[in-house]
């Protein structure tokens, strides 16, 4: 894997940059991706088959 890195020499681009439309769009994309993964994690927990199996057992054995 060979790659070349180029960086801006323009000092106006250095340091903290004001937020651009691109940054805001990237931030929104980050949040969307995080929610998608988080919901997937929740799905994994809730759909652990034995979990539902157990819940079913509770429901059917309740006196």
């Amino acid at each position: 894997m060979n790659r070349t890195i180029e960086m801006s020499n323009d000092k106006q681009h250095a340091g903290i940059q004001p937020r651009t439309a691109n940054d805001i769009e990237r931030h929104k994309r980050n949040i969307r991706t995080a929610w998608a993964i988080g919901l997937f994690a929740l799905l994994v927990m809730l759909t652990s088959i034995p979990f539902w199996q157990g819940l079913y057992r509770i429901a059917t054995s309740a006196n």
């Binding site: 060979n2 790659r3 070349t4 180029e6 960086m7 801006s8 250095a14 340091g15």
Partner: peptide
């Protein structure tokens, strides 16, 4: 990687 320019940022 190969750096072609020194960082100035």
């Amino acid at each position: 990687s190969t750096a072609t320019l020194a960082p100035a940022n």
